[in-house]
Nucleic acid binder design. Structure first.
Lengths: 342, 342
DNA sequence: TACATTTTTGAAATCGATTTCCATTTTTAT
DNA sequence: ATAAAAATGGAAATCGATTTCAAAAATGTA
């Protein structure tokens, strides 16, 4: 019942040639005539031959596969990024293995181990929110696998990095909120050891400082990535005698949490409370009022990251310094939730 | 610069034993004392040894990897299903390769080829909307790889199948719409050659028939999966002299298209027009009015599909007929968009 | 025709881990 | 003290494709 898979030896026997000849024919080797190549190819299809990549990869060293590790595949930024990576890989005839860390450091380590075992040529990673140390990324390098970080990068780990202009984008967001007349702007951030979140906070602070606004220390809450955490934080802040009149959050899900708390407290958005999110999830333009957000151009970012591997690392084009950072400009999208007059 | 990867031979040399001994120690072979195992393991970590799975898999035949092919990873049903599959795989120490067909038959074929090359032990697939023939699925079997279809299954292809109770769920949805007082219920469907969509249509028709409603032929539109297609269809229908007073669509994105057309035509939802979607995407409860939908229990379905592989195929538990169908009961979620009085 | 050159083709080594089959060595039983 | 049994460890074959090296065949040249 377990009919064995067809190998090149079976093909060779059928065609009365040697296995090496078959291998060369299938690999389009120049020393083989087109006539023979055609004959071998036809036979391969006829017998339903499929190459065993493990054997091939073992011999060749390369797998023509790259691995991606992201916190969640179902957040629009990451799924867009993956889509961009996939497109570039496909064009280069590489395949893709996708892993999720589910924001867990342990899972991230496991995923890295799996990918190294699989001998991927390169790992593109956006680390989990739990990730603080970088020794697991070191082990990627040590095992001779290329490493490219994107979006959530560890500062201390030297590698190619592809990032958004987080600080700049945040700065613009907050400037815009101020322009709309909001002055008591609270900030809900992520874990500060990740550059993305640190930079978003810095952009926020820069704008605040520039405008000379005075913000109570407790208006800045970090490490509240989930919707529920954000809701809890918002509840507390909105119960103050002098509550914030706007929230800038580093994710749309946080904004959603804030919005739901505001609704439950009968606070009008955007009239009494402005809200500005980050990531431009699909739902931002579906809810009412539509949520202002930052479009991170995930697809473009993914493409850029993958291209660094193909063009700069493999292709030898313009060798980059190991710490090269590529910045993808994001776009501020102003919708109803942050337009005070609306 | 290209320091070669550490192999068991390097370990063996360091430890002054043979490679076979190292292999056995690392694989927890019973004839080796715990003391030695510990010593080898320590050395492996010290030298940062990572097994080369290609070599191991080539030898062992199995890869402890299963492949999943879905139309899109960023639709909530599929990402939930993947999450369920992942959970079960993880528990069984298997890894997962995820591919997207992007609703293209050609991509689907490519993904299958890639997975076969990679020697996955099993492929779990939900086919693209373009997929009509099943010869590419045949080739999975021919190459000795297990096949399990889930959600979007090809009827004519014999394999294990894990499905929702589509007909039943649709029947209940339409009965509910009728109970709410809607009588001119239009149906926006998917490609009819896929059982999921055929069954949803059947459920719709069953309820209509049972209630003795008369539905004009053009109220039933098939093969309009995208939001834009759905919007176009809705625009046409709502312009009729006797337009529908409700839409039941086989996806939430279609419903969204209908909703946006209704809004643009100043038609009140749910007062003048009831809308009922399918898949329970995250946005359904965020939009206003919240969209009624069908929760397909994606995670549960994914778990079930993966378990068939581990328990029934590998584990030898209760051998199932090749055409065994497992049905996951879905849940009707009634929100504002289909409550006429609301 | 004899020889040189080019083109086809195959045998064998190789990639790294696993496993089978023996050969020792050690332990236990008599 | 000896035989039998158990534990320990290694040599070599194996998985399937690729590649090096060299032989064989075909072609061209003098």
């Amino acid at each position: 019942m377990n009919t064995k898979r067809i190998t090149i030896y079976d093909l060779a026997k059928e065609l009365n040639v040697s296995a090496s000849y078959v291998s060369r024919a299938l690999n389009n080797h120049p020393t083989i005539s087109d006539k023979v190549k055609e004959r071998v190819r036809k036979k391969a299809i006829e017998l339903n031959y499929k190459q065993n990549s493990h054997a091939a990869n073992l011999r060749k060293g390369s797998t023509r596969t790259i691995g991606v590790i992201v916190p969640h595949i179902d957040q629009s930024f990451f799924s867009e990024a993956i889509s961009g990576i996939e497109e570039v890989c496909f064009a280069n005839n590489y395949s893709l293995v996708i892993c999720q860390s589910h924001e867990s450091f342990k899972n991230e380590c496991l995923a890295i181990d799996t990918l190294i075992h699989q001998n991927v040529d390169c790992i593109l990673i956006s680390v989990s929110s739990e990730t603080q140390s970088s020794s697991h990324l070191d082990s990627i390098r040590k095992n001779n696998v290329q490493l490219i970080q994107f979006d959530r990068c560890l500062d201390k780990m030297s590698s190619y990095k592809v990032l958004n202009d987080n600080k700049d984008a945040s700065y613009k967001v907050v400037k815009n909120l101020i322009k709309e007349g909001y002055t008591k702007i609270a900030f809900l951030g992520g874990p500060g050891h990740l550059a993305v979140f640190k930079n978003r906070k810095e952009g926020y602070l820069k704008a605040i400082k520039e405008e000379g606004l005075i913000i109570p220390y407790n208006f800045i809450v970090e490490d509240v990535l989930s919707k529920d955490d954000a809701a809890a934080a918002a509840k507390e802040l909105l119960a103050l005698k002098e509550p914030p009149d706007a929230f800038f959050t580093v994710s749309d899900h946080q904004s959603l949490g804030v919005f739901q708390v505001a609704t439950s407290l009968n606070i009008q958005v955007p009239g009494q409370l402005g809200i500005f999110g980050f990531a431009n999830e699909a739902f931002t333009e579906l809810i009412s009022p539509a949520l202002s957000s930052v479009n991170q151009k995930g697809k473009e970012l993914g493409k850029c990251a993958a291209k660094i591997f193909f063009e700069n690392i493999l292709g030898g084009k313009r060798p980059l310094s190991k710490d090269h950072e590529e910045i993808i400009k994001s776009e501020i999208i102003i919708r109803e939730s942050s337009i005070r007059g609306a």
